[in-house]
């Protein structure tokens, strides 16, 4: 990976932070510190249903970062179990509605739909990927964890995580850059299909 990673503090607060998010470009490495909220399949469904009823998201949504993850349980005395990213495309149907509420950073793995990429442009948001399966390594970067919504969902509950130097790569930026397309093109040895 190229160059030194870019350090970002989350949530995104104020114009300087927002500009830093908009300036990110696909392929750049980042190190995240601050607050993330975990949410995956079931939590997304509930959040979007809550919005439809005119309710608010269960965490401060302005500038928020969502991590698509369902951690394994913590052993006694530990902060968390393993906590790698899950496949983001299952959240594609919900992501634009959350960006409309102020969410500016999403972290997961795998490529996104055209609708999500369009929403990234519209809202000046960014989609980052962490290494799928590097769940024990990533868990060490999580300094605290607590459930803030939907405790009945177990691993799928919304957790507030405080992270330090959490490593990720910019996959889709707000200018239309897409690392999945660009990266694969460089190494493909078959005719275009």
């Amino acid at each position: 990976m190229s160059d030194e990673p870019i350090r970002l503090t989350l949530p995104v607060t104020g114009e300087a932070d927002a500009e830093a998010i908009r300036a990110l470009r696909s392929g750049q490495r980042v190190l995240l510190s601050g607050t993330l909220y975990t949410a995956r399949d079931a939590a997304h469904r509930r959040m979007v249903e809550a919005l439809a009823r005119g309710e608010e998201l269960p965490f401060p949504s302005e500038g928020a970062a969502i991590y698509y993850a369902g951690p394994s349980p913590a052993r006694p005395g530990r902060v968390i179990g393993s906590a790698g990213p899950t496949t983001s495309s299952r959240m594609d149907a919900f992501a634009p509605a959350l960006m409309a509420q102020g969410v500016r950073v999403m972290i997961g793995k795998g490529s996104r739909s055209a609708e999500v990429k369009e929403a990234l442009r519209r809202y000046g948001a960014v989609y980052l990927v962490a290494t799928g399966g590097a769940a024990a390594l990533l868990a060490r970067r999580i300094k605290s964890a607590r459930v803030v919504a939907y405790p009945d969902l177990g691993a799928e509950a919304v957790h507030e995580l405080v992270v330090e130097d959490f490593p990720a790569v910019v996959a889709n930026d707000s200018a239309g850059g897409d690392l999945y397309t660009e990266g694969i093109r460089a190494y493909r040895r078959e005719a275009d299909v």
């Binding site: 990976m1 993850a69 369902g70 951690p71 394994s72 052993r75 530990r78 179990g81 393993s82 906590a83 790698g84 899950t86 290494t131 799928g132 399966g133 590097a134 769940a135 024990a136 390594l137 868990a139 060490r140 691993a155 490593p167």
Partner: peptide, 23 residues
């Protein structure tokens, strides 16, 4: 870099007694 992370991840998982992957 990713392959290096994966090898390191396996070492950490055993050391911390946490699953290699949360799934």
């Amino acid at each position: 870099e990713i392959l290096a992370q994966l090898v390191e991840n396996a070492r950490i998982a055993w050391e911390d007694q946490v699953p290699v992957c949360q799934d």
